[in-house]
Design a protein around this nucleic acid. Structure first.
Ligand code: MN
Ligand code: MN
Ligand code: ZN
Ligand code: ZN
Lengths: 164, 164
DNA sequence: GCTGAAAGTGAAAACCGTTTTCATTAGACG
DNA sequence: CGTCTAATGAAAACGGTTTTCACTTTCAGC
């Protein structure tokens, strides 16, 4: 699911770039995840396959994957962001507020919303960034409440910065 | 338009906080803008009213305005973000890709989209983050093309970081 | 399989937006 | 005014990301 690993490597070679052990590890780490990952988390996951991997290379590879379109950005309420593998060219993230799982949603018909916005603002609307949030199937079944799995940081920060 | 300055000051005093010369300048700078602003840009604008203003105070005031709900975050394609005044409690930004102007859009009926997403993902959807993009009335009238006003950075970064 | 040109890598340093610290200033309220 | 406390700004600290650079690896072409 999510990213097709073979496609990613095809795109890399098509650009005249090289498939390295490090890139394989980063792509695998991202492709395997159903949860938002920070660059640091990608680093830690990929490092299990490739212990001598450097954080610098993770950043460089994530940028490359972004150019290829294999990553989708997920914005948190406070503006920081995380990355999830993108399964298709046009899709949106649906984020579970409880466990952090991210699922892709592709059947977005924004026609009515775009018409309403055009009426209200006069803009000629050509694009949209949409992200839905709620409870995934598992979390909804477990009960309606708050965070079960503390693994996912609900505030959506890349990482805990200051102590505050 | 956008933020009601008086309301903001009411909320500030209601919290037992103080209305200072610096806060007045920051609120004015944000409220006057129809374009996304970075904290640095807010600082520069507010400094014209209040030359001894410090950047630290801008950050502190922006955080306060965020808590009050007087700011809306705008996410750029690359994940960095900017701030615009929020006119209402629930609304979405419509961003002009050409000049950077941001207008608020409130009549969002996401019913169909949410139903489609529920069908596709099984999530119980309780929230949405939506941001539309296109051309504002002025830019659409001027022609269909690319950036006219180089003032707005199309990449959406807070500021030009590295040289790269 | 070699070989060589060019891409890739990682450690360390630099960068830079943001946050913290702390001594000083200035609202609000009587 | 006087007091009490929130607010401020300069400077330092912070921390995620990017750059640098000497070294390694990939892979197309023998
Ligand atoms: Mn869509
Ligand atoms: Mn809405
Ligand atoms: Zn969940
Ligand atoms: Zn415009």
């Amino acid at each position: 699911m999510a990213v097709s690993v073979d496609d990613v490597f095809s795109q890399i070679t098509a650009r005249g770039l090289r498939v390295t052990r490090q890139r394989r590890a980063v792509v695998a780490a991202v492709a395997d995840s159903s949860v938002c990952l920070s660059p640091l988390e990608v680093f830690e996951a990929a490092r299990r396959d490739c212990p001598d991997l450097g954080l610098t290379t993770v950043y460089r590879t994530l940028e490359l994957l972004g150019e290829i379109g294999a990553l989708r950005r997920v914005h948190g309420a406070d503006g920081c962001e995380r990355l999830v593998p993108a399964g298709s060219t046009h899709g949106h993230a649906v984020v579970c507020d409880s466990c952090g799982r991210v699922t892709e949603f592709t059947e977005c018909d924004m026609g009515d919303v775009v018409r309403a916005a055009t009426r209200e603002t006069g803009y000629r609307i050509t694009g949209h960034f949409l992200q839905l949030s709620g409870l995934c199937v598992d979390c909804a079944a477990q009960g309606d409440g708050g965070a079960r799995t503390p693994a996912a940081r609900p505030d959506g920060r890349w990482n805990e910065k200051g102590s505050r």
